[in-house]
Design a protein around this nucleic acid. Structure first.
Length: 279
DNA sequence: CAAGAATCCTGTCAGC
DNA sequence: TGCTGACAGGATTCTT
């Protein structure tokens, strides 16, 4: 899916067109994504005034006047497409359409339909069942090596799997976990509880730098992710290991001994890493 | 309780 | 060109 940097980029794109504006019209084109849309969603969005946005992990929260917020998750293939109003046809897999009074059309497109939309009370946002269990925000000050070390303590699972678990830290996905572990020089196969001390002091800044640089690049554009404006993020060109099976590791001194970037499968998902530089 | 597998869904790509 | 199977950014739910 869109991981934290992509979600942050999408949220900023939405804020630029929606913050302080009024939704003139909302339409739903099917009854559900992962779960049914909340009852009366289109009617409750139509005429709503948007106060602002925030992100929690991979979730976007759109705060409305009147005390309600809209929770949006992009799932694996979700994206927001912002275009001028005009066309009457609904693009393929566009499940929710918003139109602003300024003439912008915001479409939530999600072919695989793993995304979701919900309505909740703004005052109780963090108590929502999908947000309540999330770990710390990796780019906030509260995410320290001591905090991560405590979250990893006693866990008998590869560090790769532990970091993908949103209860450990919120917002990382397959790509950025691979990239952050490479940056920290840690093997994705290491058991989570062994990542302590100096290792976790390398890992926290590695996660933060990876995410910060990716956000600055507008995220990574894969097949079905683009920024709301239609521009492409370009962080995919900065990947050091993800999708680079067999290529030389740029940190390795080179042969002899450099076997290139390996791809393994952990809990059903591809992991890319350098066996030599990541221990 | 914790960890891993199965599952939801559609599109794309490699290989035949 | 067309078919088939593997695989894809996620996270819940089900099994061990």
């Amino acid at each position: 899916m869109p991981e934290l940097p992509e979600v942050e980029t999408v949220m900023r794109g939405l804020a630029a067109r929606l913050e302080g504006r009024t939704i003139r019209l909302a339409r739903i084109h099917r009854p559900d994504l992962r779960w049914p849309f909340p009852a009366g969603l289109a009617a409750r969005l139509t005429g709503a005034h948007v106060l602002g946005f925030r992100r929690r992990g991979k979730y976007i929260l759109m705060r409305l006047a009147g005390g309600e917020s809209v929770l949006i998750h992009l799932g694996m293939s979700g994206r927001m497409v912002i275009t001028p109003c005009g066309a009457n046809t609904v693009p393929a897999h566009e499940h929710l359409t918003l139109e602003t009074e300024e003439g912008w059309r915001i479409g939530f497109v999600d072919p695989r339909r793993f995304g979701c939309v919900d309505l909740l009370a703004t005052a109780a946002e963090d108590a929502h069942r999908l947000l309540a269990g999330l770990g710390p925000e990796p780019l906030e000050a509260a995410f320290t090596p001591a905090v991560l070390e405590a979250a990893l303590a006693g866990r008998i699972t590869p560090i790769k799997a532990a970091l993908l678990d949103q209860r450990t830290v919120a917002g990382l996905g397959n790509i950025y976990v691979c990239e952050a572990l490479f940056r920290a020089g840690l093997s994705p196969r290491r058991l989570a509880h062994t990542v302590a001390g100096a290792a976790v002091r390398r890992l926290v800044p590695a996660i933060q730098a990876t995410l910060t640089e990716a956000i600055a690049a507008g995220g990574s554009s894969l097949r079905d992710y683009v920024q709301p404006s239609g521009e492409l993020g370009y962080f995919q060109h900065a990947w050091k290991v993800y999708g680079r099976e067999g290529e030389a590791c740029e940190q390795c001194p080179g042969p002899p001994g450099c076997t290139g970037i390996a791809r393994i499968v952990q809990s059903g998902r591809s992991t890319f890493y350098c066996r030599r530089m990541q221990r």
